[in-house]
Design a protein around this nucleic acid. Structure first.
Lengths: 202, 202
DNA sequence: CGTTAATCTTGACGGTGTAAAGTTCAATGC
DNA sequence: GCATTGAACTTTACACCGTCAAGATTAACG
C-alpha cells in the first residue's frame, strides 16, 4: 500500500526491498523510532512478517538501509539551505546549518535514527558513503574560509559539533530559552570565521 | 545480588526501589541501552518480573529514575573536571568540558540514556532537577566570563552545544580525525571567551 | 488477635525479532 | 513442452519483552 511498484509485479511483490525502506520511513514519521517494528513495516508493505529476512540480514540491517536513505535526505536539506542563502561565506555556512536544523526539526525521528549508536556502529558501506557525503558538503562550505589557525579541519569540526549539539539539545531541552521565553537563534552562537580571499573585494 | 541491602530485609526485599536503579545502571554499563529490560533488572535484583510495577509506573518511569541518578553522576564528572583544572576562567570551562567528555566516554550507555528522547520528553520532577543542576554548573562557570555580546546566555548555549555535539559525534563518528589519524582535541575548537574583571590582574 | 494494606509472585496476553520448514512461482535447461 | 531449480514469500514456532489481573505473603496497626 501507499507505495506504487514501478514495474509490474514480477514474483510476488516486485521490489520489496525499496518498498520496505519507503514504508519504514513513513512509519518512522508517524510512530517514531520506538514504534518502528519489522512486523509493522512488513504488514505495511503487504507481506508476511518474515518476508524482510530475504532482503535484509535482520532488523538492524533494514534500519541501516533506512538510515542511509535518511542521510541523503539530510544532505539535501543542507544543500538546499545553502542555496537559499546569500553568496557570502558566512551566509553560506549559516544556510547549511539552517538546513541541518530544519531537517532535525521536520524529520525528528529520522534524525534520531541516523545518529543512533545502534546504526552508526554497524559498518555498512552504503551508509558510510551517505554519511561521508553529508560531511563533505560541510567541508566544501568551510573551504570558503581560512583554515583554523589551531588545527587542521578545526573549523569543520567546530561547526559540525556546534550545530549538531544545538540541534539535539533543542529537540529535548527547554534550556535554550532567553529570559523573554524566546528561543536562542543559532546564528547568535555561531562564531564568525575568517573568509578566504578577504583581500579581493573588501 | 551484587547489591547489599543496607537495612535487614524488612518486607520481602527491603529497599527494592533503589536496588532496581542500582541494578539498572549496572546492566546498562554491561549490555547497553538495547539490552536493558525490566525483567532483566528485576531478576538481577532477585525479585519477580512484575515486582518493579509496585515502585515504578512502567518501564519508562524506571528509566527516568535511572536517568536522574545518571544526571547526578554526570554533574559530578563536570564538577570534578573543574576542580582538577587550573584557576583561570578558560581553564575552568575547559575542565568542565573535559569532565563532560570523560563522562560520555566512560559511561557511554548512561550518556545515551539521559539524552534520549524517550527520557527527556517525560516531565519528571526529580529528573528535571538533576538536569537543571547540570546546566547550572555550566552557567556558574560561564559567569567567569563577560556575557555574550549577541544574546543573553549566548556563551552558555554555545559551549553546551559545542561540547554536547563534540561528545555525541565522537561516540559514533570517525570523522573527528586529523590527517595524521589523531583525534582532534576539544580545546582546539573551543573559542576563547572574554574573562570577566580582565582589568584587575592583566 | 484480626484487619488492612503494601509487597511480591504467578499466570496470562499481545507484541517483538528470528529461525526453520513449507509453498508458490518465474526462469532455466533439456 | 516440461521437469528442475532456486528465489521470494508464507506459515509455524520459540524465546523474550512490557503490562495487567489475581492471588499469596507479611509487616503494621488498632
Amino acid at each position: 500500500m501507499r507505495y506504487m511498484a514501478k514495474q509490474k509485479s514480477k514474483h510476488h511483490h516486485g521490489n520489496l526491498r525499496s518498498a520496505l525502506i519507503s514504508e519504514g520511513i513513513h512509519i518512522l514519521e508517524v510512530d517514531g523510532v520506538a514504534g518502528l517494528s519489522l512486523r509493522k513495516i512488513a504488514t505495511a508493505a503487504g507481506v508476511s512478517h518474515a518476508a524482510p529476512a530475504h532482503h535484509f540480514k535482520g532488523k538492524t540491517a533494514l534500519l541501516v538501509a533506512i538510515a542511509a536513505y535518511g542521510f541523503r535526505i539530510f544532505t539535501d536539506f543542507m544543500q538546499e539551505g545553502r542555496e537559499n542563502a546569500g553568496p557570502g561565506p558566512h551566509e553560506q555556512i549559516l544556510g547549511l546549518c539552517q538546513g541541518y536544523l530544519d531537517f532535525a526539526e521536520k524529520h525528528g525521528a529520522l534524525f534520531e535514527l541516523i545518529f543512533s549508536t545502534e546504526i552508526k556502529s554497524h559498518a555498512d558501506k552504503d551508509l558510510q558513503n551517505a554519511s561521508l557525503r553529508a560531511f563533505q558538503l560541510l567541508e566544501e562550505t568551510c573551504a570558503l574560509f581560512e583554515p583554523s589557525r589551531y588545527a587542521e579541519k578545526g573549523n569543520e569540526i567546530m561547526v559540525w559539533s556546534l550545530v549538531h549539539g544545538y540541534a539535539t539539545l533543542r529537540i529535548h531541552n527547554k534550556l535554550m530559552l532567553q529570559s523573554d521565553g524566546s528561543e536562542m537563534p543559532f546564528e547568535l552562537i555561531l562564531p564568525r570565521l575568517d573568509p578566504k580571499n578577504s583581500n579581493l573585494l573588501k
